[in-house]
Measured scan of single mutants.
Amino acid sequence: EAHAAIDTFTKYLDIDEDFATVLVEEGFSTLEELAYVPMKELLEIEGLDEPTVEALRERAKNALATIAQ
């Protein structure tokens, strides 16, 4: 499951495998979680700032909209 989540994140969020791995290690496994989890939870991840989190959430929401079509 972790590998599938990493693949999904790299494909749809335009991030590298290392960043995707950090997200999975922090407990995220779906685009929905990244799109809708409280921003505070993402900001608790070391190295993430508000602009990065906002961009990540926007990419996740856009990916979900694209997949739904």
Rank of each mutant, 00 (worst) to 15 (best):
E25S: 15
T66H: 12
R59H: 07
E25M: 15
L56Q: 00
E58G: 04
E54Q: 13
E58S: 06
K61G: 04
V24S: 03
L31H: 00
Q69E: 09
L43T: 06
D18G: 13
I6K: 06
T30Q: 05
I15G: 01
I67G: 05
E1N: 13
H3C: 10
T10D: 01
E58N: 08
M39L: 12
I45R: 05
E50S: 09
Y36I: 08
E17L: 13
V24R: 06
E25V: 09
E54S: 11
A2G: 10
E44C: 08
G47S: 06
L48H: 02
E32P: 03
L64F: 03
K40T: 12
I6R: 08
A5F: 07
K40P: 07
E26R: 15
A20H: 00
E41L: 14
L23V: 01
E54L: 11
L31I: 08
V37G: 15
I45D: 01
A20R: 01
L34N: 00
I6S: 03
E50Y: 13
L64D: 00
E26N: 15
T10M: 15
P38K: 06
D16P: 09
D14A: 11
V22H: 11
A55C: 10
E54M: 12
E50V: 14
A55D: 09
T52C: 07
H3G: 10
E46Y: 12
V37F: 10
G47D: 04
A5P: 06
P38G: 08
M39Y: 08
V37Y: 09
Y36R: 11
T66D: 09
V53Q: 02
E41Q: 14
R57H: 06
E54T: 14
A20T: 01
F28P: 01
F19M: 12
D14W: 09
E25P: 01
I6A: 04
T8P: 02
S29E: 08
A55L: 13
G27Y: 03
E54N: 12
E32I: 08
P51Q: 14
L48C: 04
F9Y: 04
A63M: 05
P51I: 12
V22E: 04
V53F: 06
R57W: 05
E1A: 13
K40V: 10
T10G: 04
L31G: 00
E25N: 15
R57T: 06
F9P: 00
E25C: 13
V22M: 15
E50R: 14
Y36G: 08
K11G: 04
A63P: 00
T66R: 07
I15K: 00
H3P: 07
L48N: 01
R57P: 04
V37M: 11
A60R: 00
D49S: 07
F9M: 03
A55G: 07
P38N: 12
E26V: 14
A35W: 06
A63K: 03
L42Q: 03
A35Y: 08
T30N: 06
F19A: 05
A35M: 10
I6V: 08
Y12M: 06
M39G: 05
T10Y: 05
D18K: 13
L42G: 04
D14Y: 11
F19I: 10
F9Q: 00
E26Y: 15
G27A: 02
L56E: 01
D49N: 07
A35R: 03
E33L: 11
E32C: 12
I15T: 01
K40L: 10
L48K: 02
F19W: 07
A2R: 15
R57F: 03
L48T: 05
D16K: 07
L23A: 01
E54H: 11
Y36V: 09
A5H: 07
D14V: 05
E32W: 15
E54R: 14
A2D: 09
I45F: 04
D7Y: 12
V53W: 15
T66V: 14
S29T: 15
T30C: 04
E32A: 09
P51H: 14
E44Q: 15
E46K: 13
L23K: 00
A2M: 15
A20N: 01
T8I: 14
D7G: 08
L13T: 02
K11Q: 08
E25I: 11
I15D: 00
S29L: 15
F28T: 01
H3L: 15
P38W: 05
L13I: 02
G47A: 06
